[in-house]
Design a protein around this nucleic acid. Structure first.
Length: 580
RNA sequence: GCCCUGGUAGCUCAGCUGGAUAGAGCAACCGCCUUCUAAGCGGUAGGUCAUGCGUUCGAAUCGCAUCCAGGGUACCA
């Protein structure tokens, strides 16, 4: 039997009936139906049904009133055991038991693959995110891209796309020189010199005065123990640059591991220069006449492709701009055979989009293959006060945050808002183990479900009487319940479980829309709704009873619930604990 | 000035390519543990969808204008 989403099942039924109705001349002046002009929605009021289609849009061509259209269509529907009702211009649909019990069967059969769409078009996608300078620890903002990017990768993979996750290391620019110079000062300090960073604000901008370079200086002296204040100035700057860079890259990657953010590749900007690729693409642009010299600099004619103005790619001092390497980098991604590039950038880079797209077009590529997801920034809320994350000042590092609130809370909170919304990260809330904290609420539901299953298959002790209560079924009984699942038993508990089954069904649609929209916050919302539905079911319905068939039916619901919840949490890379 | 986001309940946010009475969580208030995890559940209250005009049978949703907030407007990244 074909597994299909309820809403598509309903839509198909209506469209088939509609075509028949048109042929039978029952729809006024309407003599043709264009597929796709009807949409399925969820009624706000559940009394109307599980899904609804508004046929008012057909009134224009049919020239009869919407209720008449709806009634005419419903007459041609093969209803099976589902319920169709007409209210005003709406055709309401309420799923019958066959569809619902089949759904539980589908979950139990597919397990971790439940929700993965079938027969969809997939692409080979390169997803780039975070892409920080290796000049210091990640800050809070990087955490948002880390959580969203890796969850998006998981989502797109689950959908069926081939996803390659890449971190672009900006290890070539003047930032690295700055880093090396700063390390020299820290090393000198370690050696007892009374030196410090310049106090003049302008000069200070040429350094990274943060404390985080102190341990790097100590590590440097361990590696180069012969370093003294007398000979330090003879050591090449690049030695300091390389050491600090490698150290910070290691710090960054360790944190990514901790956060379960898994890149397929770290792409060094330096290799882009050294391999000649930057020069190659600049030459290509030059050949096509898109490069010119002005005021001693070299410019790219990006305004030919919709950018506000032309952009410098080689400065007066002969060095490249950030854009120059980025042009080569994006062209190289396409040369590596990807159908689509998705980049996650901070909103502060939005002005950058037209020039990168311009470069792709100028090089003869399709600029639409680049999709830039612009993320609004993160504000930290501490004790109810908003602490704005400046570029350098009062920087709370991501690592501090993770140590404070944990990996699961960090990942969930960083993913739970629409990417277009500035994220308020309330540290106190994220730490709480209560219903104020959605992460705990969701995880608790999973642990609770696991606990029920444990109690069903294990003997347990009555805390009041101290007597042993026999397990209602053995572990192997439970396994055969799942392995030879007979969906008909679900009928026994359909009344109580109806709502949660529909919520479980929604997961299939969720994957399709979330993947299409490149949004992961919808997954966060879903797990909260799903958990709420389960908690409600739990409170109203006793699972383990003396009635073995009924117990089996409800255990199947509990198992299906925890399976789907775990699938959703796996996308978010938030753990689904067995007990709490 | 121009460009990008956002403005919905006390707070944080949903609201899909316009549709049935505007939704959730938290906070507030009232209830629910002799039974599988009360880290939970049920209920009540709470809104001029920033403002104005327009398109439409119908607008929180689309268009224009205005106001407010954040970001950008580099030969920084």
């Amino acid at each position: 039997m074909r597994k299909i989403m309820l809403r598509d099942y309903f839509l198909n039924k209506v469209e088939e009936a509609l075509i028949k109705a048109v042929k039978a001349n029952k729809l006024g002046q309407m003599n043709e139906y264009q597929k796709g002009s009807l949409i399925v929605e969820k009624p706000k009021n559940p009394d109307f049904g599980d899904f609804a289609i508004n046929v008012s849009s057909l009134a224009r061509s049919a020239k009869i009133a919407p209720p008449m259209i709806a009634n005419a269509i419903v007459e041609f529907i093969e209803k099976e055991d589902n319920e169709y009702t007409v209210v005003a211009g709406f055709i309401n649909f309420k799923a019958g038991e066959t569809l619902l019990i089949n759904l539980i069967k589908e979950i139990i059969d597919k397990k971790s693959n439940f929700g993965r769409p079938e027969n969809v078009e997939t692409e080979k996608i390169i997803l780039e995110y975070i892409s920080a300078n290796p000049t210091g620890p990640f800050h809070i903002g990087h955490g948002r891209w880390a959580a969203m990017g890796s969850a998006l990768a998981n989502l797109l993979k689950f959908y069926g796309h081939e996803v390659y996750q890449e971190f672009y290391i900006n290890d070539a620019g003047s930032q690295i020189q700055k880093l090396g110079r700063s390390l020299i000062i820290r090393v000198k300090q370690e050696l007892g010199d009374d030196i410090d960073f310049p106090t003049d604000e302008e000069e200070r901008k040429n350094y990274y005065p943060g404390d985080y370079l102190i341990p790097v200086a100590q590590a440097f002296l361990q590696k180069y123990p012969d370093t003294t204040l007398e000979n330090i100035d003879k050591i090449e700057l690049s030695t300091f640059c390389d050491f600090a860079k490698e150290y910070e890259e290691k710090v960054q990657r360790d944190l990514l591991d901790k956060l379960h953010v898994e890149f397929d590749n770290f792409y060094s900007e330096l290799t882009l220069h050294n391999s000649g690729k930057v020069k190659h693409y600049v030459d290509k642009l030059t050949q096509s006449g898109k490069i010119y010299e002005k005021d001693g600099a070299t410019w790219f004619r990006s305004s030919d492709y919709g950018d506000d103005q032309d952009r410098v790619i080689k400065k007066v001092d002969g060095s490249n701009t950030y854009l120059t390497a980025d042009i080569a980098y994006h062209a190289d991604k396409l040369e590596r055979g990807f159908d689509r590039m998705i980049d996650i950038w901070g909103a502060d880079h939005h002005g950058y989009i037209p020039r990168v797209k311009a470069s792709l077009e100028a090089l003869g590529y399709d600029p639409n293959k680049l999709e830039v997801l612009l993320g609004q920034l993160v504000n930290l809320v501490i004790d109810g006060n908003e602490v704005r994350m400046g570029k350098r000042k009062n920087m709370v590092t991501l690592e501090d945050l993770v140590d404070e609130v944990g990996v699961d809370a960090t990942r969930f909170w960083m993913s739970m808002r629409n990417i277009d919304t500035t994220l308020d990260f309330d540290i106190e809330l994220a730490k709480k183990s209560s219903d104020e904290n959605p992460v705990f609420y969701v995880q608790y539901a999973h642990a609770r479900a696991c606990s029920i299953i444990r109690n069903a298959v294990n003997d347990r002790i009555d805390t009041q009487s101290g007597e042993t209560i026999k397990a209602v079924m053995s572990e192997s009984d439970f396994n055969s319940l799942l392995n030879n699942f007979n969906q008909d038993i679900v009928k026994l508990t359909l009344k109580e479980a109806r709502k949660i089954i529909l919520k479980l069904e929604e997961f299939k649609h969720l994957i399709v829309t979330s993947a299409r929209d490149r949004q992961v916050y919808t997954i966060c919302r879903y797990v909260q709704d799903l958990a709420a539905e389960f908690h409600s079911f739990y409170n109203s319905t006793r699972v383990i009873t003396d009635d073995k068939s009924l117990t089996s039916a409800r255990l199947a619901i509990v198992y299906a619930f925890k399976t789907v919840l775990a699938n959703a949490l796996r996308i978010l890379a938030v753990s689904a604990p067995e007990r709490m």
